[in-house]
Protein backbone atom coordinates (compact mmCIF):
# COMPACT_ATOMS: atom_id res chain seq x y z
CA UNK A 1 0.00 0.00 0.00
CA UNK A 2 1.56 3.24 -1.17
CA UNK A 3 1.21 6.55 0.52
CA UNK A 4 -0.35 8.26 -2.51
CA UNK A 5 -3.16 6.92 -4.62
CA UNK A 6 -2.20 9.49 -7.24
CA UNK A 7 1.12 11.20 -7.63
CA UNK A 8 1.69 13.76 -10.32
CA UNK A 9 5.17 15.30 -10.87
CA UNK A 10 5.87 18.26 -13.09
CA UNK A 11 3.34 17.33 -15.71
CA UNK A 12 3.22 19.62 -18.75
CA UNK A 13 1.20 19.52 -21.98
CA UNK A 14 0.66 21.68 -25.05
CA UNK A 15 -2.08 21.72 -27.68
CA UNK A 16 -1.14 23.35 -30.98
CA UNK A 17 1.75 25.22 -29.31
CA UNK A 18 -0.56 26.51 -26.63
CA UNK A 19 0.47 25.37 -23.11
CA UNK A 20 -2.40 23.68 -21.35
CA UNK A 21 -0.58 22.25 -18.35
CA UNK A 22 2.53 23.80 -16.87
CA UNK A 23 4.61 21.58 -14.61
CA UNK A 24 1.70 20.48 -12.48
CA UNK A 25 2.56 18.48 -9.36
CA UNK A 26 -0.07 16.90 -7.19
CA UNK A 27 -0.64 14.10 -4.71
CA UNK A 28 -3.87 12.46 -3.65
CA UNK A 29 -4.04 10.07 -0.76
CA UNK A 30 -6.08 6.89 -0.77
CA UNK A 31 -9.69 7.66 0.12
CA UNK A 32 -9.14 11.38 -0.28
CA UNK A 33 -11.65 13.44 -2.31
CA UNK A 34 -10.03 16.26 -4.24
CA UNK A 35 -11.91 18.99 -6.12
CA UNK A 36 -10.23 20.52 -9.18
CA UNK A 37 -11.70 23.92 -9.92
CA UNK A 38 -10.88 26.76 -12.23
CA UNK A 39 -12.24 28.73 -15.14
CA UNK A 40 -12.78 27.22 -18.61
CA UNK A 41 -9.56 26.54 -20.42
CA UNK A 42 -7.57 26.31 -17.20
CA UNK A 43 -6.56 22.76 -18.03
CA UNK A 44 -8.46 20.89 -15.41
CA UNK A 45 -10.12 18.45 -17.82
CA UNK A 46 -6.81 17.93 -19.55
CA UNK A 47 -5.16 17.15 -16.23
CA UNK A 48 -7.95 14.76 -15.39
CA UNK A 49 -7.55 13.00 -18.72
CA UNK A 50 -3.82 12.68 -18.17
CA UNK A 51 -4.39 11.24 -14.74
CA UNK A 52 -6.72 8.72 -16.29
CA UNK A 53 -4.23 7.76 -18.97
CA UNK A 54 -6.62 8.71 -21.73
CA UNK A 55 -4.42 11.57 -22.72
CA UNK A 56 -0.64 11.76 -22.58
CA UNK A 57 1.38 14.64 -21.06
CA UNK A 58 4.31 15.96 -23.00
CA UNK A 59 6.55 15.78 -19.94
CA UNK A 60 6.45 14.83 -16.30
CA UNK A 61 5.43 11.68 -14.50
CA UNK A 62 2.16 10.32 -13.18
CA UNK A 63 1.91 7.37 -10.80
CA UNK A 64 -1.32 5.63 -10.00
CA UNK A 65 -1.02 3.43 -6.98
CA UNK A 66 2.73 3.71 -7.39
CA UNK A 67 2.70 2.57 -11.02
CA UNK A 68 4.16 5.09 -13.45
CA UNK A 69 1.53 5.34 -16.15
CA UNK A 70 3.38 7.86 -18.28
CA UNK A 71 5.91 5.17 -19.15
CA UNK A 72 3.28 2.59 -19.95
CA UNK A 73 2.21 1.63 -23.45
CA UNK A 74 -0.81 0.01 -25.04
CA UNK A 75 -2.03 -3.05 -23.22
CA UNK A 76 -0.12 -2.30 -20.04
CA UNK A 77 -1.93 0.98 -19.70
CA UNK A 78 -5.23 -0.59 -20.56
CA UNK A 79 -4.63 -3.21 -17.93
CA UNK A 80 -4.00 -0.53 -15.32
CA UNK A 81 -7.17 1.29 -16.30
CA UNK A 82 -9.12 -1.92 -15.87
CA UNK A 83 -7.76 -2.53 -12.42
CA UNK A 84 -7.20 0.81 -10.84
CA UNK A 85 -9.23 3.51 -12.49
CA UNK A 86 -12.86 4.46 -12.74
CA UNK A 87 -14.28 7.30 -14.87
CA UNK A 88 -17.41 9.40 -14.57
CA UNK A 89 -18.16 11.87 -17.37
CA UNK A 90 -20.31 14.93 -17.67
CA UNK A 91 -22.15 13.43 -20.62
CA UNK A 92 -22.42 10.03 -18.90
CA UNK A 93 -20.90 8.12 -21.85
CA UNK A 94 -22.80 4.94 -21.31
CA UNK A 95 -22.45 2.35 -24.05
CA UNK A 96 -25.64 2.85 -26.06
CA UNK A 97 -26.14 -0.75 -27.10
CA UNK A 98 -25.77 -2.17 -23.61
CA UNK A 99 -28.45 -2.23 -20.99
CA UNK A 100 -27.96 -0.64 -17.59
CA UNK A 101 -26.93 -3.95 -16.05
CA UNK A 102 -24.59 -4.73 -18.91
CA UNK A 103 -22.98 -1.32 -18.72
CA UNK A 104 -22.32 -1.81 -15.04
CA UNK A 105 -21.00 -5.35 -15.49
CA UNK A 106 -18.70 -4.34 -18.30
CA UNK A 107 -15.58 -3.56 -16.22
CA UNK A 108 -15.91 -6.95 -14.50
CA UNK A 109 -16.17 -8.62 -17.85
CA UNK A 110 -12.92 -6.94 -18.81
CA UNK A 111 -11.34 -8.38 -15.68
CA UNK A 112 -12.59 -11.84 -16.48
CA UNK A 113 -14.97 -12.14 -13.57
CA UNK A 114 -17.42 -14.99 -14.21
CA UNK A 115 -21.16 -14.63 -14.75
CA UNK A 116 -22.89 -15.41 -11.44
CA UNK A 117 -20.38 -13.53 -9.30
CA UNK A 118 -20.48 -10.65 -11.70
CA UNK A 119 -24.24 -10.48 -11.79
CA UNK A 120 -24.45 -10.62 -8.02
CA UNK A 121 -22.08 -7.75 -7.55
CA UNK A 122 -23.70 -5.68 -10.26
CA UNK A 123 -27.16 -6.18 -8.85
CA UNK A 124 -26.00 -5.20 -5.40
CA UNK A 125 -24.39 -2.03 -6.67
CA UNK A 126 -27.34 -1.18 -8.88
CA UNK A 127 -29.59 -1.37 -5.86
CA UNK A 128 -27.13 0.72 -3.95
CA UNK A 129 -27.32 3.50 -6.50
CA UNK A 130 -31.09 3.14 -6.78
CA UNK A 131 -31.32 2.04 -10.41
CA UNK A 132 -31.92 -1.63 -9.71
CA UNK A 133 -35.44 -1.36 -11.07
CA UNK A 134 -34.06 -0.08 -14.41
CA UNK A 135 -31.49 -2.79 -14.79
CA UNK A 136 -32.81 -3.94 -18.15
CA UNK A 137 -33.43 -0.54 -19.68
CA UNK A 138 -31.15 1.02 -22.28
CA UNK A 139 -29.46 4.39 -21.90
CA UNK A 140 -31.81 6.01 -24.39
CA UNK A 141 -34.66 5.18 -22.03
CA UNK A 142 -33.12 6.71 -18.92
CA UNK A 143 -33.28 10.13 -17.38
CA UNK A 144 -30.11 12.10 -16.79
CA UNK A 145 -29.98 11.19 -13.15
CA UNK A 146 -30.49 7.54 -13.82
CA UNK A 147 -27.74 7.61 -16.42
CA UNK A 148 -25.27 9.23 -14.09
CA UNK A 149 -26.08 6.82 -11.27
CA UNK A 150 -25.49 3.98 -13.68
CA UNK A 151 -22.20 5.58 -14.66
CA UNK A 152 -21.16 5.77 -11.01
CA UNK A 153 -21.96 2.12 -10.49
CA UNK A 154 -19.93 1.24 -13.56
CA UNK A 155 -17.03 3.33 -12.36
CA UNK A 156 -16.91 1.64 -8.96
CA UNK A 157 -17.92 -1.95 -9.59
CA UNK A 158 -14.36 -3.16 -9.98
CA UNK A 159 -13.11 -1.44 -6.84
CA UNK A 160 -10.64 0.96 -8.41
CA UNK A 161 -8.04 2.79 -6.39
CA UNK A 162 -8.82 6.05 -8.15
CA UNK A 163 -12.08 7.57 -9.36
CA UNK A 164 -11.95 10.44 -11.82
CA UNK A 165 -15.11 12.49 -12.28
CA UNK A 166 -15.49 15.28 -14.83
CA UNK A 167 -18.39 17.57 -13.92
CA UNK A 168 -20.53 14.66 -12.80
CA UNK A 169 -23.47 16.92 -11.98
CA UNK A 170 -22.96 19.30 -14.92
CA UNK A 171 -25.89 17.89 -16.82
CA UNK A 172 -28.23 17.30 -13.94
CA UNK A 173 -30.81 19.33 -12.04
CA UNK A 174 -29.99 20.28 -8.47
CA UNK A 175 -31.96 17.49 -6.84
CA UNK A 176 -30.35 14.82 -8.93
CA UNK A 177 -27.03 16.51 -8.55
CA UNK A 178 -27.26 16.41 -4.78
CA UNK A 179 -28.17 12.77 -4.98
CA UNK A 180 -25.16 11.97 -7.07
CA UNK A 181 -22.79 13.84 -4.83
CA UNK A 182 -24.16 12.11 -1.80
CA UNK A 183 -23.66 8.73 -3.47
CA UNK A 184 -20.13 9.56 -4.47
CA UNK A 185 -19.28 10.61 -0.98
CA UNK A 186 -20.70 7.51 0.63
CA UNK A 187 -19.23 5.06 -1.77
CA UNK A 188 -15.74 6.52 -1.80
CA UNK A 189 -15.74 6.51 1.99
CA UNK A 190 -16.78 2.88 2.01
CA UNK A 191 -14.21 1.77 -0.47
CA UNK A 192 -11.39 4.13 0.39
CA UNK A 193 -11.24 5.15 -3.26
CA UNK A 194 -9.42 8.38 -4.05
CA UNK A 195 -11.64 10.78 -5.98
CA UNK A 196 -10.54 13.62 -8.22
CA UNK A 197 -13.52 15.76 -9.11
CA UNK A 198 -13.42 18.44 -11.78
CA UNK A 199 -16.26 20.84 -11.06
CA UNK A 200 -17.66 24.35 -11.03
CA UNK A 201 -20.25 23.48 -8.47
CA UNK A 202 -20.02 24.55 -4.85
CA UNK A 203 -22.08 21.56 -3.80
CA UNK A 204 -19.54 19.32 -5.41
CA UNK A 205 -16.60 20.95 -3.71
CA UNK A 206 -18.44 20.64 -0.44
CA UNK A 207 -18.11 16.85 -0.42
CA UNK A 208 -14.37 17.03 -1.01
CA UNK A 209 -11.56 16.94 1.49
CA UNK A 210 -9.42 19.34 -0.47
CA UNK A 211 -9.89 21.88 -3.24
CA UNK A 212 -7.26 22.67 -5.82
CA UNK A 213 -7.60 25.66 -8.15
CA UNK A 214 -6.13 25.77 -11.61
CA UNK A 215 -5.50 28.75 -13.78
CA UNK A 216 -3.75 28.85 -17.11
CA UNK A 217 -2.44 25.37 -16.70
CA UNK A 218 -0.92 25.79 -13.23
CA UNK A 219 -2.11 24.87 -9.78
CA UNK A 220 -2.94 28.08 -7.97
CA UNK A 221 -3.89 27.04 -4.53
CA UNK A 222 -4.62 23.98 -2.54
CA UNK A 223 -6.69 23.97 0.52
CA UNK A 224 -9.98 23.32 2.20
Amino acid sequence: MHLSAIECRLVSKQYDARPVLREVSLQVAPGERLALTGPSGSGKTTLLNCLGGIDRPDSGEILIGGEPITRMQGSELADLRRRKLGNIFQFFHLLPTLSVRENVEFPLVLLGIEGPERKKRAQALLERVHVGHRADAFPSQLSGGEMQRTAIARALIHGPAVLLADEPTGNLDSANGANILSLLSELTDETKTALVLVTHSAEATAICHRIVQMRDGSLQSSGR
Binding site: G65, E67, S75, D79, L80, R82, R83, K84, L110, L111, G112, R121, A124, L125, R128, L156, I157, H158, G159, P160, A161, S182, S185, E186, L187, D189, E190, T191, I207, H209
Partner: peptide
Amino acid sequence: MKEAPAQVVVKQEGTRASKSAVDQGR
Protein backbone atom coordinates in the same frame (compact mmCIF):
# COMPACT_ATOMS: atom_id res chain seq x y z
CA MET B 1 -17.98 16.44 4.66
CA LYS B 2 -19.97 13.34 4.68
CA GLU B 3 -19.94 10.55 7.18
CA ALA B 4 -18.95 7.12 6.22
CA PRO B 5 -22.04 5.36 5.02
CA ALA B 6 -23.02 1.74 5.44
CA GLN B 7 -20.51 -0.64 4.12
CA VAL B 8 -20.96 -2.12 0.72
CA VAL B 9 -18.76 -5.03 0.03
CA VAL B 10 -16.60 -4.01 -2.85
CA LYS B 11 -13.36 -5.86 -3.21
CA GLN B 12 -10.23 -4.02 -4.12
CA GLU B 13 -8.86 -5.37 -7.32
CA GLY B 14 -5.41 -3.98 -6.97
CA THR B 15 -3.15 -6.68 -8.26
CA ARG B 16 -1.90 -6.55 -11.82
CA ALA B 17 -3.22 -9.32 -14.02
CA SER B 18 -0.65 -11.63 -15.57
CA LYS B 19 0.18 -11.16 -19.21
CA SER B 20 -1.20 -14.53 -20.18
CA ALA B 21 -4.47 -13.78 -18.49
CA VAL B 22 -4.72 -10.57 -20.51
CA ASP B 23 -4.07 -12.46 -23.74
CA GLN B 24 -6.61 -15.07 -22.89
CA GLY B 25 -9.09 -12.44 -22.11
CA ARG B 26 -8.60 -10.76 -25.46
